[in-house]
């Protein structure tokens, strides 16, 4: 007996996605963006180097001192000679610098990726649809033939998705969930583009397969 139907009810899925988005923000202080997280996961050396380079920057007073030194090094006496007005609402002494949010460590990205796979496994188990097989299903087989060719095409599809998300600066989670929920124009446009393309392609394939 399955605990869940084959597919989750749409409303429950929406609630789960909202919980993951909100949980990521509350837990890490950063917006959810799975393609970016995966890209950082696949570049462990750069991810760790970035984390090292930002070590200590959460100390706002130390950051203020470092910024002051960098300012003097860049502009010399010019920064004192030019009487710049303080920003609106700020006294001459200034306000405390905003606290920077530490970058999630590489291990946290690995845990997130593992939990993503485990979530799919759990969902399939609860719905009673868990099975392991090496073919990609009858529809994929009809469209792209069987055997190694279908796997090569699948790999090419994955590469195109990766290329597209890097080019667009986000994927369905980064633009679709995090960006659209903040009404970011670029994310709204990106989501319209990739969902619109997906709907059109689905309709086209349905017609071809009919």
């Amino acid at each position: 007996m399955s605990l869940l139907e084959e597919y989750w009810p749409a409303g429950l899925g929406a609630l789960a996605l909202a919980a993951v988005s909100l949980g990521t923000y509350l837990g890490t202080g950063r917006l959810l963006g799975v393609s970016g997280m995966l890209a950082r996961l696949l570049r462990p050396r750069e991810t760790m180097r970035l984390a090292r380079s930002e070590r200590g920057l959460t100390d706002t007073e130390a950051l203020a001192r470092a910024l002051e030194a960098a300012t003097r090094a860049e502009f010399g006496g010019g920064c004192d000679a030019v009487p710049l007005p303080p920003p609106p609402g700020v006294t001459a002494a200034g306000r405390p610098l905003p606290a920077s949010i530490p970058r999630p460590p590489w291990a946290a990205l690995a845990v997130f990726a593992a939990c993503t796979a485990l979530g799919g496994l759990l969902s399939a188990t609860l719905s009673g649809t868990l099975s392991f097989h090496w073919d990609l299903g009858p529809v994929h087989g009809r469209l792209f033939s069987e055997g190694p060719t279908s796997w090569v095409i699948l790999l090419l599809g994955g590469v195109l998705v990766g290329f597209g998300t890097q080019m667009a600066g986000g994927c369905t989670s980064g633009h679709g969930l995090s960006g659209c929920s903040r009404l970011q124009p670029a994310s709204l446009l990106a989501t319209v583009c990739f969902f619109g393309t997906a709907v059109l392609l689905s309709l086209l394939l349905a017609r071809i397969m009919a």
Partner: peptide, 19 residues
């Protein structure tokens, strides 16, 4: 940009913003 946010709260740092 977190640095832009920092430039906003100290007059001394606004030279970065202007440049």
């Amino acid at each position: 940009c977190p640095l832009f946010a920092a430039f906003q709260v100290r007059a001394f740092l606004r030279i970065w913003q202007m440049n």
